[in-house]
């Protein structure tokens, strides 16, 4: 079970995190997401992180430490403590429902 230690009261948008958290248990990662310090328990890959945050990986591009990831590779890219993660949303476009 993944747990993402940030404020998700308003729907879990990652832009809305506000609590700074520290890790208190083994296996916890301290990350900087959208410029905010936070912690994460769960499988250490980008796809799992996005799922834990309630994000649909199809909606966003992800950068780790400044590098844009290949969107097809989210399951294979690992994350570690102190990584800086930016979620870049596709906006202002989109397809009609298919």
């Amino acid at each position: 079970m993944s747990e993402f230690g940030s404020n998700s009261e308003n729907g879990g948008r990652v832009l809305s995190f506000e609590r700074e958290e520290k890790c208190h248990s083994a296996g916890c990662l301290e990350l900087v997401v959208q410029g905010k310090a936070t912690h994460y328990h769960g499988p250490r890959n980008v796809d799992s992180l996005l799922r834990a945050m309630g994000e649909n990986s199809l909606y966003a591009n992800v950068r780790i430490n400044g590098d844009v990831l290949d969107r097809r590779d989210f399951e294979n890219v690992s994350i570690k403590t102190d990584d800086t993660i930016d979620i870049l949303y596709f906006m202002g476009g989109g397809a009609c429902s298919t």
Binding site: F90, G93, G94, S97
Partner: peptide, 19 residues
């Protein structure tokens, strides 16, 4: 494109009319 290299897969990102 330096940030969003390719468009998202069709049907994955909703439009304002939908979302």
């Amino acid at each position: 494109r330096c940030v969003f290299e390719e468009p998202p897969p069709p049907g994955t990102v909703p439009s304002c009319a939908e979302a």
